[in-house]
Write a protein that binds this DNA or RNA. Structure first.
Length: 259
DNA sequence: ATGGCCAATAGAATTGGA
């Protein structure tokens, strides 16, 4: 089976591209971020017609996440329990898969704007809360995958300019420490389980011909638990949708799980 | 000179993204 994540930067604008991509890549699970719409405007009918159930958690203008799944979803959690958050950034759900129940956690991590800013402090608090909540989630659901837009380039090789951008947003030591703390829970970056082309990224700035020059970052990730790790057969970035007319600035990341 | 684009809101300029 295949699980995927894609920050689509407005579902209203990108719904046709999402449906088109799903038609060509009928993944079992697709986690979306930056819906930028409220749940009453979520296109449940079009998603259902494409063969998917959706657990949506949106808000007006900003943020918003959803899990699309071919199998029914249950035990849906919206945002991090106990962490009061005005912003819709997390949705989690369980589905039945060949090897047993699969827990999907979809996160739209805080951008953080600039180190030292209030938004950066919020990013740190948010990641600490996510980390602490995930410890229990992993204990309750050994077969767990954390997918989403992490807004962190975990290592220098995940950035087009690691020297020029050292300690800037997405590259700071603090952010990378938080990323490693997630790994220390027993999660593995599925992308790095395999040989990958140099300079593989998942986001490119709309400005400055970012995509054409491959000036990008790898900030969208799929992390898998110890129980899932032996089942991962591949993990790739699909650059093709970034070439669409009116593209999202992010590309989908897809992992193949055996079974 | 450190930007240039894109989306939402509103109905022009601002906020946020990364």
């Amino acid at each position: 089976m295949q699980i995927a994540t894609w920050n689509i930067n407005s579902l209203s604008v990108r719904l046709p591209q999402v449906l088109g991509w799903l038609a060509a890549h009928p993944v079992d699970v697709l986690c979306l971020q930056e819906l930028k719409l409220t749940d009453d405007k979520f296109p449940f009918d079009a998603i259902e017609a494409a063969g998917y159930e959706a657990a949506a958690f949106g808000q007006k203008t900003y943020n918003g996440v959803a899990i699309l799944s071919r199998a029914p979803l249950r035990d849906v959690v919206r945002n991090i329990p106990g962490f009061g958050d005005e912003q819709a950034r997390v949705v989690a759900a369980t589905l039945d898969a060949p090897g047993g129940p699969l827990r999907i956690v979809n996160g739209y991590f805080v951008n953080g704007q600039e180190p030292g800013s209030e938004k950066f402090a919020y990013k740190m608090r948010w990641m600490e809360a996510l980390h602490d909540w995930l410890r229990g989630e992993l204990a309750a659901h050994p077969r767990l995958a954390l997918l989403g837009d992490f807004n962190i380039a975990p290592e220098d090789r995940d950035s087009y300019d690691p020297v020029g951008l050292r300690e800037t947003i997405h590259h700071t030591s603090e952010e990378r420490t938080h990323f490693r703390a997630l790994l220390a829970l027993g999660l593995t970056d599925a992308f790095r389980m395999f040989e990958q082309p140099e300079k593989t990224f998942s986001w490119w700035d709309y400005r400055m011909l970012g995509f054409q020059k491959n000036r990008g970052l790898r900030i969208d990730h799929i992390l898998v638990s110890e129980a899932l790790k032996p089942l991962v057969e591949s993990c790739t970035v699909d650059r093709a949708p970034r070439k669409n007319q009116q593209p999202s600035d992010h590309a989908p990341v897809v992992a193949e799980l055996r079974g």
